[in-house]
Amino acid sequence: MTEMLTGATVRKWIEKTAAVMAENRTYLTELDKAIGDADHGNNMDRGFKAVVEKLPEGDDIGALLKAVSMALISKVGGAAGPLYGTMFLQGSKPLMGKSEISFEELAQFFEDAVAGVKMRGKAEAGEKTMLDALVPAAEAFRKAGDLDAGLKAAVEAAEQGMKDTIPMIAKKGRASYLGERSRDHQDPGATSSYMIVKALEDAVSEAA
């Protein structure tokens, strides 16, 4: 049973995410090729590589997450940069100076992160975007009531949300230009969002 999420685990989460993005670079780009401009995998991989390089010493969780945000903003290039950048930036603000965070604080992090993405992308869930994975994940996490169960529920919700994007018609971003033709493709943004949530669960369960 994990009570608190430590700075070391957050660092591990970030490194794990970078590894997952590198591993799935081609897969994400393939997904993006179908409905976007075929750069999502490359962008995420490049962004998280830069993240790992620029990660500061220490276990200030807010500072770690802010560093993630800044690296993504300046390295990703496509829309995922400002969107994930905002997500981590908004989420990091209340966590500045904290070396461990509680279930409540992580729930708040998810909600702030989701709010940041909604604000930046002017989007809501159901539009075939990252939010389709992130919104249910944040809700499921809060509902579960503790860290371990919450992360498990969040991963399941994010995965379901990611799959739910397949029949959706895109309303935002380049995929929306395709209209009806954006159907039957899984959204690459929702997929990378799921991977990020999954990486957190993995990092936590390994630390336990």
Binding site: D39, N42, N43, R46, M70, I73, S74, K75, V76, G77, G78, G81, P82, G85
Partner: peptide
Amino acid sequence: GIDDPEAPLGTDAIR
């Protein structure tokens, strides 16, 4: 552009 000689196309909020 962005500061990446491999993939220079993109925009950078900090820039």
